[in-house]
């Protein structure tokens, strides 16, 4: 028990260190550049304490729960040897985690209001809602597909460069033909898809799979799933934009 407490304390200290840059930046700009007093300092201190505590718990639980389950599932699937089930799982994981992602819901809503004010869709609530939902499902489908491709890549041992470079070429080509109002949203949608819980799980899945399959290097083959998951949404959102207009 005592030792566990020591580990926890060490993690707490690490979280404090992680947060220090933010505190310094905010303090510097508030006092030196804007030259304003700090508003409701009590609230801020409480909030900072919560952030430190939260980060500590998160990292603690990550190594206890999220990483082991991701890897054990990858190993179980590798042992089972059924590629189709593995790919189904990969798609569900990508689709399921993205469709409910709060950041994506927020961006989709904002994008809908951009489209409405730009006259691309009619300015009714129903039209905006259907547009936002369409965007969400497009992105979720793209992420699901990306994880499937990524898992297939780990199994076959394709080098990631070619996939990513091919994706870049597609993005550039699509940028030329897609309507210009979708481009900013499309580029951003790549970044917002990967949430704090998805990233550790998907990373553990890739690394676990690469270490379970003979001849794969977990460093070279295990990473790269997230890169694909942030590339495909750009392409698919641009396609969505073209279909809509």
């Amino acid at each position: 028990m005592n030792r566990q407490f020591l580990v926890f304390l060490k993690a707490l200290l690490g979280s404090c260190k992680d947060l220090l840059p933010i505190i310094l930046v905010i303090a510097f700009f508030q006092f030196a550049v804007l030259q304003q007093p700090m508003p409701n300092i009590g609230d801020i201190l409480v909030g900072l304490a919560l952030v430190v505590l939260g980060l500590t718990f998160f990292i603690y639980g990550l190594e206890m729960g999220l990483f082991p389950i991701g890897e054990s599932m990858a190993q179980a699937f590798a042992k089972k040897g059924s590629i189709s089930w593995l790919l189904t799982f990969a798609f569900c994981l990508g689709f399921g985690t993205t469709v409910a992602e709060p950041a994506l819901i927020a961006v989709a809503k904002e994008a809908a209001s951009v489209a409405a004010s730009g006259g691309i869709i009619s300015d009714t609530l129903a039209a905006q809602l259907s547009y936002a939902n369409g965007l969400r499902f497009t992105v979720a489908f793209a992420v699901g597909l990306a994880i499937v491709i990524g898992v297939l890549r780990v199994i076959r041992g394709w080098p990631i460069q070619y996939l990513i470079l091919g994706g870049y070429v597609l993005v550039v080509l699509m940028t030329m033909i897609a309507p210009h109002w979708i481009i900013g949203i499309a580029y951003d949608s790549g970044g917002v898809t990967t949430s704090t819980i998805t990233v550790p799980l998907v990373t553990a899945l890739g690394v676990g799979l690469a270490s379970a399959i003979k001849g794969r290097n977990p460093m070279i083959d295990g990473f790269g799933l997230i890169a694909l998951a942030s590339l495909t949404p750009m392409i698919f959102v641009m396609i969505y934009g073209m279909v809509i207009s």
């Binding site: 609230d43 909030g47 952030v51 939260g54 718990f57 998160f58 206890m64």
Partner: peptide
């Protein structure tokens, strides 16, 4: 732990940062 940590973290962000 992950859930509690994430909730604390988000709440702290919302309150302070």
């Amino acid at each position: 732990y992950v859930l509690i940590g994430l909730a604390l973290f988000l709440l702290g962000l919302e309150k302070a940062l």
